[in-house]
């Protein structure tokens, strides 16, 4: 099992992060200074090094504005537990989320339709990789700035997650 996380390079705009930041401002939280969004793909299937490399560089990231890190995961419950992930490879550029920040990860519950994952499966076939795959898409938000536990919870509950269809995990660096 692999995780590929795609980052917008620091000098380019991170559009979804900016939108979330403006939503955070609109509910009166002024201590968050920057938000970056990264899609994280969990690839479950019998794939080899070069196939994952192709996926990351050709399909899941943009050659000019984005960079990626791929990790091999050892633990089964991959989204929630990332402590034992091992960096498999990256594209040589340092991923931008540097510095202290809180993170929020959100993903669809089992059995909820995710059109994007379906398209990715199609695209993997187009790449000539004909194997059985599962793809799970996770949205990861990096929040820079001082924040309390309650505020981080509020941001997650009020702006980002709908627990009817999604699960989430928060990793707060509290002030």
């Amino acid at each position: 099992m692999f995780k590929i996380e795609v980052f917008t390079k620091e000098k380019f705009k991170n559009s979804k992060g900016e939108l979330v930041l403006s939503d955070i401002l609109s509910i009166g939280v002024r201590t968050i200074l920057k938000v970056r969004y990264s899609p994280l793909y969990v690839i479950d299937g019998n794939v080899n090094y070069s196939e994952v490399r192709t996926l990351a560089s050709e399909l899941l990231s943009d050659k000019i504005t984005e960079t990626y890190v791929c990790k091999k995961c050892i633990v089964e419950d991959t989204v929630k537990n990332s402590k034992r992930d091992v960096v498999f490879f990256d594209d040589g550029e340092i991923p931008p989320p540097v510095g202290v920040c809180s993170t929020i990860k959100i993903w669809y519950k089992k059995n909820v339709t995710d059109p994007v994952s379906e398209s990715i499966l199609k695209a993997i076939k187009d790449l000539g990789i004909v194997k059985e795959f599962k793809v799970k898409r996770v949205g990861k938000y990096y929040l820079y700035g001082k924040i309390s536990r309650i505020t981080l919870h509020n941001i997650t509950a009020k702006l980002l997650v709908n627990t009817l269809i999604q699960e989430y995990m928060v990793n707060g660096i509290y002030s």
Partner: peptide, 13 residues
């Protein structure tokens, strides 16, 4: 393909 992943990405692939 819904412009999933990024615009035109899946089709250009």
């Amino acid at each position: 393909y819904g412009d999933d992943v990024a615009s035109g990405k899946v089709l250009s692939n």
